[in-house]
Amino acid sequence: MTETTADVTARASSTRSRAITVGAIVPIVVTALAAVITASWIPELPSPVAVHWAGDTPDGYGNVWLFILMPLVICTLFALFVVAMSSRPTESGLLTANQKFVLVTSPWMAGLLSVGLGGTLWVQRGLDDAAEASGGAIWMLWGLLAGFAMAIPAWFLLPPSDRAVVTGEPPAAMDFAPTELVSWSRSAKVGRGARAVIASVFVMQFVLAFVLAANGEPAWTVLLVVVAVLLVLVAATFYWRVTVDRRGLTVRSALSWPKTTIPADEITDVAVVDVQPVAEFGGWGWRWGADGRTGVVLRTGEGIQVTRANGKRFVVTVDDASTGAAVLAGVRSGG
């Protein structure tokens, strides 16, 4: 069966509209409805309402609008992210398993927050004082169930995940004399998209730590420890060197760890591939893709992919990947 370009284009546009329905329209409509319904209860609700529960009794109170609007605001922001992430279907007009997973997280979250937070307001109707409320905690469980009730059909509404194996372009192997000494290497660093995500995570952590410290919560020190650990992880996976020589392919962090070498004689195939970090690997850094590939994925674009004798595939994003792949193919062929 041959497929025309028109078929693929039609499928890609159907994929895109289903992705927008699942990732954005359904969650936004559900949380907006939940906001309208919960807002209609305001006359019956105590003020302030219980917003935090210890077991089955409330231990934290706040403004009712917090719970009315929070699901809608969070789900709208998340919807923007997931739609941007899945706006480019794969070559055959489908989505990767990673893209589908992130997309159904959107309706899952809408179900969880609408039912979970809405339920804790439902049990407070008719009370004069929120402290008398009980039976709120069980609604987080109903919320979880509602989340799955939305996410599972959403998964099947999306097209089947693309199981096509990324083969890439085979390089033209470089010719080497048997005695020739060879080394190709490039430095590589995390790309702009990942840097923006990392920076925003750190800003959020610092703001949170500041708010906690200002409120006299001792938890802020824990948060700073988390930030310190994250900093070490980021530092270890920010700058890399990719080396191809007679030993094989070596990918090494500038801090010497983590590091991996794939020996030349274990490599059965070398290719130049185009890498989409979020869609194919769910993010940046040392990653495992849903299609079984491992990779040091630092940015969108060209990379070297090697297949080992045991069938495992490894990818590294690096500039001038075609030269690196050509050298690797050359040393592998025993030149």
């Binding site: 080497f176 004399a177 005695t179 020739e180 000494l181 060879v182 080394s183 290497s185 030269t323």
Partner: peptide, 14 residues
């Protein structure tokens, strides 16, 4: 950066 050295060329490796 690609480096190719030929020990048989007679030119010092460095």
């Amino acid at each position: 950066m690609l480096i190719r050295l030929d020990p048989a060329s007679g030119v010092a490796l460095f």
